[in-house]
Design a protein around this nucleic acid. Structure first.
Lengths: 341, 341
DNA sequence: TAGTTATTAGAAACCGATTTCCAAAAGGAT
DNA sequence: ATCCTTTTGGAAATCGGTTTCTAATAACTA
C-alpha cells in the first residue's frame, strides 16, 4: 500500500509551491503553462485532494444533503420518491456533487438539519420528503443554505413538482370525453400538499366547467395505501343511492384499494364505475384492470431540481424562490370505460 | 447568526485545554469530574465538533459508504434493494453512522471505489448492488476497508442474503403437497448470483427427491423484467407437448410476465399451470392472480448487514468473512392450485 | 513519611488543504 | 529605454480538531 500523496508531494515533485498547485487545481491565478504541467502530473500520478482538508478550510464541500423524512413512513421503498431521488442523483453526480442523507444525529449528539448542514459545509439541500410544518425544516429553508424541494411548497424555497392541476384537468376531460357524467373523488390525506392541490383542482375545474359536484361524491382517505383506499371507497359508495360513474383517486396506491373496495360492494370496474389514478407506478400497468392514470415525470422532476439547485449553488439566476411545474401525461389503460349516453 | 463555536471556545470557557475537551468527548483519559463538566457545558451550549476537522486528523469518519451500481439498471427504484438499504440505514443511524453513496467521481476527477473510501476515511462499506467481476469492486473487497455485502458472495467479504436454497425447497415442497408432478423453472439471468443459486438449488433438490427434471422444463430469461418473463414462458411452453403443471420463477417481476405469457398461449394460471415467484414485492399481492411467492426478509437482511458491519468496525468478532443466510417465508396466495391426481 | 506508581491535564506538533498578501516577473505605454 | 500595470508564483497564516509526549498531581505502598 503506497503512501498517500499530499499536495506538498506534488509541489515538491514539480518544484512549485503548494499554493500554486491548489490554484492550478481550482482555477486560481496561474499561467496556463504551469496549470497544464500540474494537471498533467496530477493525472499521471493519480493525486486526489483530501476531502476533509479541503472542507475544513474552504467553504464548500461538493456535497448535497438529502432530506428524506421517514416519519411519514415513506422510506426509500416508495416508488415515486425514490425514483425522483435516483434521477436527481444521476444528474448532480455528473456535475461532481455527491449525496449524503441528512441525519438528526451526528456521531454521538443530536443535531438540527441546519446545524448538520453548516457543520458539513453542505453546498445545497434537496428536500425529497419532508414535513412542511417541522420546525427543523422551516429553520433550514429560511437559512442561508440553498434548498430545492420536490415535495413541499413554500414562499422561501424553490419547488419542482408535477402540475397537479393539469393532471386533474386531463382526468376530468378524459372522463367527460368518454361519456361520464357523475364524477367523484377519493382524495389522499390532506396533510400532503400534493393531495391537497389535487382536491382543490378538482373542485375548481368542476366549477369552471359548470358541472355538478355533490359533497357526498368527495371523500378523503385516511392513509396512503391500499387499505385506506378500500375503506374510503366502501364508505363513499355505501351511503349513496345514485352512485358516481367515475372516481378520480389521489394516487395509484390508493386506487388499487378503491377498485377492490368497489368490487367488494358488487360493482365492477370499469363497467359500473370508472377509476382513474395518479402517479403511474409500476404496479399500475400490471393491475387488473390495468389502471388508467396520470403519469408523473419523475425524471424531469429529479433533473430539473438538480439543475436549479446547481444553478443556485453557482449563483446563476433563480434570485427568488418559485414553483416549477412539470407537465404530466394521461396514460390510458383499462380502468375507464367509454359510456354511451 | 451566532458565530460557530470551536473546541477552543469551549476550552476557554471551562478553563481547560482543547486537548482535554477532545478527550472528554472521545472517551480519553480524563477524570470523571472534568468529563462531566465538559459534557454538561457542551450539551448546554450545543457545541458540535466540526466533522471535517475531525476527519482530517482522526482515522475515522462515522460514515459508511454505499455501493449501489447503476450499471445493472437497478436504481433506487428497485423495491428489493432499496428496501434493504432503507433498513440498513435505519439501523446504522441508530449507532451514529451516516450513509454516503460512493461515487466514481470526486469533484473534478475520477476515482476508484477504494481511493474514494480512503480519501474520505470511510469507516465501512455496504455493497447493496455491485458487479462481482468489476475490478474496482474486487480491489475494494481485498483492501483493508471493512465491507459487507447484501448482494455479491466472495471469500473475501461478509455477505448477508436470503437463503435461496431454502426458498426453492419451500416452493418445491409446497408444489408437491398441492399435487403437482411436473415442475419447471423460469430462472433469472445467471449474471446475478441470487438467480444462479436458485437454479442450482432447484436442480439439486429435484435430484435429491428423485424427481424427474427434463432440461426442456428449464429456461433462463434474458432480463429482469416483465417482458423477459413473458417471452421466456412462451418459448418454454411453445415447444412442449407435455407441459409442466407448475413453474418456479426467479423473481416476482419476471413472474408477472411469465403468467401473462402463459395466458397468451391460452392456458390459465393456476388452473392449468401453477406459478410461484420469489421476492414478494408490493405488486405481488395486488396482481391477478395474487402471486404465491417466497418472501425475502428485507428488514432482517438490512439489519443483520448493519450489525455485522458495525461489529467489524469495532473489531468485535467476525474475524474471517462468512456467508449469513436469512430465512425466507412461503407466502401462499392464488397462483398455485391444489390438484387431485 | 518517604518513595514509587498511576492518573490527569496541558503544550505542541500535526492532519492537508485554501487563501490572503506580497514580491517578482512579464507585458504595455510612452 | 523607462515607467506603470497586470500576471504569476510563493510564504505564511488559517481552518478546527486529534494525538503524542511531558509534567504535575493524586494515589498507593512499604
Amino acid at each position: 500500500m503506497k503512501k498517500k500523496k499530499t499536495i506538498y508531494d506534488v509541489a515538491k515533485a514539480l518544484n512549485l509551491a503548494p499554493s500554486t498547485i491548489s490554484k492550478a487545481l481550482n482555477n486560481g491565478a496561474v499561467s496556463s503553462k504551469t496549470k497544464a504541467r500540474v494537471l498533467d502530473y496530477v493525472k499521471k500520478t493519480g493525486y486526489v485532494t483530501a476531502t476533509s482538508a479541503r472542507i475544513l478550510k474552504a467553504k464548500y464541500s461538493w456535497t448535497i444533503g438529502v432530506v428524506f423524512s421517514e416519519e411519514l413512513n415513506i422510506g426509500l421503498e416508495h416508488p415515486f420518491f425514490s425514483s425522483v431521488l435516483q434521477n436527481f442523483k444521476t444528474y448532480v453526480e455528473k456535475w461532481g456533487y455527491e449525496l449524503s442523507f441528512i441525519v438528526q444525529q451526528l456521531g454521538q449528539n443530536k443535531l438540527s438539519y441546519l446545524d448538520w448542514c453548516r457543520n458539513k459545509k453542505i453546498d445545497g439541500v434537496i428536500i425529497v420528503v419532508g414535513d412542511a410544518n417541522d420546525r427543523g425544516i422551516i429553520e433550514l429553508i429560511e437559512s442561508e443554505i440553498k434548498c430545492v424541494s420536490t415535495d413541499i411548497v413554500n414562499d422561501n424555497i424553490h419547488s419542482v413538482r408535477s402540475d397537479n392541476r393539469q393532471g386533474i384537468e386531463l382526468s376530468v376531460e378524459y372522463l367527460l370525453e368518454t361519456g361520464h357524467g357523475r364524477l367523484g373523488m377519493v382524495a389522499g390525506p390532506q396533510t400532503s400538499s400534493a393531495f391537497t392541490e389535487r382536491l382543490i383542482a378538482f373542485r375548481e375545474i368542476m366549477k369552471e366547467k359548470n358541472l355538478p359536484l355533490p359533497e357526498e361524491y368527495l371523500i378523503v382517505s385516511e392513509g396512503f395505501g391500499y387499505t385506506s383506499g378500500f375503506n374510503a371507497a366502501r364508505k363513499l359508495l355505501g351511503s349513496l343511492t345514485v352512485k358516481p360513474d367515475a372516481l378520480l383517486v389521489g394516487s395509484d396506491d390508493i386506487s388499487f384499494g378503491v377498485i377492490r373496495g368497489i368490487e367488494s360492494l358488487g360493482f365492477r370496474v370499469p363497467e359500473d364505475i370508472s377509476v382513474i389514478g395518479f402517479d403511474d407506478i409500476s404496479t399500475s400497468r400490471l393491475f387488473t384492470p390495468a389502471l388508467t392514470t396520470i403519469r408523473q415525470n419523475k425524471k424531469a422532476i429529479g433533473e430539473t431540481a438538480g439543475k436549479i439547485l446547481i444553478d443556485l449553488i453557482r449563483e446563476k439566476g433563480h434570485k427568488h424562490p418559485r414553483e416549477t411545474k412539470i407537465p404530466v401525461n394521461l396514460i390510458v389503460r383499462d380502468s375507464v370505460k367509454m359510456r354511451k349516453n
